[in-house]
Write a protein that binds this DNA or RNA. Structure first.
Length: 323
RNA sequence: GCCGAGGUAGCCAAGUUGGUCACGGCGGGAGUCUGAAAAACUUCAAAUGUCAGUUCGAUUCUGACCCUCGGCA
């Protein structure tokens, strides 16, 4: 079950341990424990925790890492060092390609120190980008130009976008979900900002590390329970205040809407589009859905070793350390 | 007890001047996925309060009953 990408000399190879799972399953807690035990550092694989100022809503749980001190962008101290959390402003756009670059850099850095990188998170696409080594094309445009490209495409109908895509990149056109406007538009954006079509950069170059993928396993029922009680805590901790603050800091309603879940629903609440009980109810439902979608994504990966306690996880790591 | 309104899937809710058993939303199930992924998208299951009457045919018409809501008492 363990993924030895190169069977010979597996002992010589660099390691990467991944801890994934649905939201609220306690990935961070488990990973921190493991990292402490095995001299590791944590690299977050979370598409929202990269943003500064989005703490309660994304469940950063920074206290779980132990005491931390910021040193040149890398958090280090007596606790377990972590990476790729709080690295950019919520006003900045972010995506898998950017994530992958940063993640590789961080992983290699940790390995160089002779430590084990623990990739921890619930963003399936981001994790896959690291494992499979997707080859993303270079983005050659400035932020400003990117915004212009999107603005222009925003004005066009789905049909227009599809026709354009068909002309530019037939392979992607044939493959793409033609009812999913966002995907169609994104394919075009990639072409316009990198000069390369999506299908041209649709290749893989997986890293040659020994990768162990652990999934934190709980029944869906249990996950829902955890989600519900965690949501209550977050509201008490001042989640609404956090989002008000983001607004004051200049994050648009549109942007908050796009972040989804807590940010979306609290934004609607703050705009008085819904009342408080609607906020709680809708948000709870959406988080449930989100957890299910995460599990659907992970189902496809048969290399995941599902564990439900520390001991089992520990055992699996020992196996790849001294086979 | 009387008067009025109404009972359509788990919830909300459209509609049929009687005719392939019924719009939609939420919730539920299954899923898609290499550049916004906590996003975006697809798909499936599920209902006419009960009984009787009229009719070739009733969810739609009639009656009784049961229940809910509002008003009167």
């Amino acid at each position: 079950m363990i993924c030895y990408l190169y069977m010979e000399n597996s002992n010589q190879h660099k390691k990467l341990v991944i801890v994934l799972g649905a939201t609220a399953t306690g990935k961070t807690r488990l990973a921190v424990k493991l990292a402490k035990k095995f001299n590791g550092e944590i690299i977050s694989a979370d598409s929202r925790q990269v943003f500064r100022g989005m703490d309660i809503g994304t469940g950063k749980d920074l206290s779980e890492y132990g005491s931390q001190k910021a040193i040149k962008g890398l958090k280090k101290a007596s606790g377990v060092p972590y990476h790729l959390i709080d690295i950019i402003s919520p006003k900045t756009s972010f995506n898998v390609a950017k994530y992958q670059k940063l993640a590789y850099r961080a992983i290699i850095n940790v390995q160089k120190q002779g430590k084990i990188p623990f990739l921890v998170g619930g963003t399936g696409l981001y994790i896959d980008a690291v494992i499979n080594g997707y080859q993303f094309g270079e983005n050659k445009k400035s932020k400003k130009q990117e915004i212009e490209i999107r603005k222009k495409l925003d004005k066009q109908s789905l049909l227009q976008l599809l026709l354009k895509l068909k002309k530019i990149d037939l392979v992607t056109y044939n493959k793409i979900d033609k009812k999913n406007r966002r995907r169609v538009q994104r394919a075009l954006e990639i072409y316009f900002s990198s000069g390369k079509t999506k299908s041209e950069s649709d290749q893989q170059n997986p890293p040659d590390w020994d990768i162990l993928i652990l999934g934190v396993s709980f029944s869906l029922e249990k996950i829902y329970q955890k989600i519900d009680s965690r949501l209550e805590d977050r509201l008490k901790e001042g989640m609404v205040r956090e989002i008000k603050k983001l607004r004051r800091g200049g994050v648009s309603w549109k942007r908050l809407e796009e972040f989804g879940l807590e940010y979306r629903w609290v934004a609607r609440y703050l705009q008085k589009k819904i009342n408080y009980s609607e906020l709680v109810e809708n948000l709870r439902n959406d988080i449930h859905h989100f957890a299910k979608r995460q599990l659907t994504w992970f189902k496809r990966n048969n290399k995941i070793i599902w564990v439900s306690d520390f001991k089992t996880a520990e055992g699996e790591i020992k196996k790849i350390l001294d086979p």
